[in-house]
Structures are given as C-alpha cells and as structure tokens.
C-alpha cells in the first residue's frame, strides 16, 4: 500500500502565502460563512472562496476524489433535507411558505400533493453556496500545504510545542506504518487469509480484521519505546524549541490577515449587530414560479 502526500510545490500564489495566514484566513471564512443565511452575503463569500481556491493552481484531476466526497454528502443532505424531511433548518426557513405545486401534480394518472415550497428550494441553493465555499477553503489544504510546515505553524499559532510536534511525528510514521500494514497483509495472505472470502454476518466480518489490525498495532506500540528513547536522547521536551521550517510574513500576508479580520468581524457584526444575516428569498425567484 502506498500512502503519499498530495502536496507538491507548483509556484502558485498560494505557495507564497505564509501557512499561518492561510489557516487564519480559512477559519475567518468559516466564521463568516456560518454566521449568515442571506444569499447576497453567501454569494459574495462564494466568489471570494472561488478566487482563493484559484490561487492554489490545483487541477480537477488531482482534487476530484475530494470533490466527489463533498458533492455526494451535499447531495444526500439536500435531498433528505429539502425533499424528504421538509427542512425547517433550525428555524431558518419559516414554516408555511409558497408551494411550488399548490394544486398537486399528475403522476401516473394520480394527483400527487407534494409540500415542496419555493422557500425551501432557495434555501437549498443557499446551502450549496455555503458548503461549497467552505469546502473550497479546506479541500485546497492537502494539495498546497507543505507537510513539513504543520508543526512550526501550529506552534507559532500558540499550540504547545509538544502537541505541535506530535503532528510532525505522526506524519513521519505514516509511510512506515503503511508499509508495515502491507507486510502484515502479505504475511497473513501467505497463511491462506483472504479478505474477500469472508463468511458470516457483519460481526464476523469485523472480527476478521483482527489478524491485520492487531499485529500492526502491537508492533507500533513496541517500537514506541525506542522512539521515545531516541527523542529523549536528543533533548526533546526540555525547553522551548525552535523549528527548522521557516515561517515569515511578507507584505501580502498582512493584507491576507487584514482581510481575514474584516471578513470574520464584518460578517459577525453584519449578522448579529445589524441583523442582516436572515434568510430571504429574492422577488425574482418567486417570479420564476408565477
């Protein structure tokens, strides 16, 4: 099994933005986008996210697996929320509203009364804007963030050293553990073990994972004594540490930071001070159904 990082340096604008500024921007975006259901705001955010996403220079081919998952989840949720349960969405969409088919419609000669309202369709549209906007921010990360940057970035953002270093060490051991898993898989197959040939119910199927999971896990635990020794022997955890990975704010990073603050604070103020964040359906949308 080969597990590899999707990051590669592509000299994109995103490659030149400090990782700290990037994390801050994405969280500011998350705050802003989740504070409103007003379609004008959501559409603006969506466009901002689109521009941000384009700065990464990723291709559809490399990101499509991530997008497939997001689109599937989005589809499931909208179908269930809009059509099946008739989404009240935590009181965002007021009850009642204007039915799309006030007199029902004919299906196989029967008249069907279906309670889909114009408001709910518009709300689904708003959901799509919001979720895609957030997704663009976060799907970008694995493809454009250097795996070496995580420890230094989190530490610099205020996470304790030991915790920040944990992510770095975890990244180091991923390929080793992936290889160990393959070896164990081969070793058990050599003893006649076949995963696709699993008989019995769901419980049996899960229990049959034991010959794969147990050796890999116990081996990992046994090796941690040596790893801890190696760390102690090189002075780990005995003082404030520095990081080899270089983080430096440039002029444009301050622009990103300023914009992030504006986005988050502006979004919150607009919604919670001026109450501009409420869900509204524009007149032109009603007109479409007239």
């Amino acid at each position: 099994m080969l597990v590899s990082w999707r990051y590669k340096y592509r000299n994109s604008p995103m490659d030149h933005i400090d990782p700290r500024a990037r994390w801050i921007f994405s969280f500011a975006f998350l705050i802003a986008a989740t504070s409103t259901w007003n379609w004008i705001f959501l559409l603006t955010y969506f466009i901002i996210a689109l521009i941000w996403y384009r700065l990464g220079n990723t291709t559809w081919k490399e990101t499509r697996s991530g997008w497939r998952l997001v689109l599937f989840m989005l589809f499931m949720m909208i179908v269930i929320n809009t059509i099946i349960t008739g989404g009240g969405a935590g009181g965002v969409v007021p009850p009642g509203g204007q039915l799309v088919w006030p007199n029902g419609f004919k299906l196989f000669g029967e008249t069907v009364h279906f309670g889909l309202t114009i408001e709910r369709i518009w709300f689904a549209f708003c959901q799509v804007l919001r979720i895609l906007g957030i997704s663009m921010n976060f799907i970008l990360i694995p493809y454009t963030m250097d795996a070496r940057s995580y420890g230094a970035t989190f530490s610099s953002l205020g996470m304790p050293d030991k915790l920040a270093y944990t992510t770095e060490l975890a990244i180091r051991f991923i390929p080793s553990l992936a290889r160990n898993f393959s070896v164990t898989m081969d070793a058990q197959r050599a003893r006649g073990f076949e995963l696709d040939d699993i008989k019995g119910g769901i419980f049996n199927k899960i229990a049959r994972m034991a010959p794969l999971i147990i050796p890999v896990t116990m081996n990992a635990i046994l090796s941690s004594e040596d790893i801890a020794d190696a760390m102690d022997l090189r002075g780990f955890g005995q003082g404030k540490r520095t990081w080899l990975y270089e983080l430096r704010y440039h002029r444009w990073d301050y622009i990103v930071l300023g914009f992030s603050a504006l986005l988050a604070i502006g979004g919150l103020v607009a919604s919670y001070v001026f109450h501009m964040g409420d869900f509204i359906v524009p007149q032109f949308f009603y007109n479409l159904f007239a």
Binding site: R148, E168, L169, R172, D229
Partner: peptide, 14 residues
Amino acid sequence: TLLQDPERQILGSY
C-alpha cells in the same frame, strides 16, 4: 547514542 534500528531512531520526514 546511535540506537540499533535506524528506522525507530529517525524522527524527521526529511
């Protein structure tokens, strides 16, 4: 100190 198994001593990805 150089430990027996370099695989368990190497702590950096690069």
